[in-house]
Amino acid sequence: MKIIYFAWVREKTGTAEETFERPDGVDDVAALIQWLKGRGEGYQTAFADPAMVRVAVNQEHVGVDHRLADGDEVAFFPPVTGG
């Protein structure tokens, strides 16, 4: 799967984009966040307050209970501030 980070989520994780196989047991967005938090301090900081992070899967806004499939494009970002 492809994971993309934007704005301060990117700055905190220190990663703009990464691709890896969907880990065993990572069936939904909440599980993916838990798994990512295990990857280091930057990720822990980025996801410290899950209410502050929004998620899109395959470029659609979703909630953390959204089921993941192999090959999904998952993006994490702060609440949007365009316009």
Partner: peptide, 13 residues
């Protein structure tokens, strides 16, 4: 503009 502000993925620095 109201929907754009809460749905379109833009971020201001």
């Amino acid at each position: 503009i109201d929907w754009l502000k809460t749905k379109a993925p833009f971020w201001k620095l």
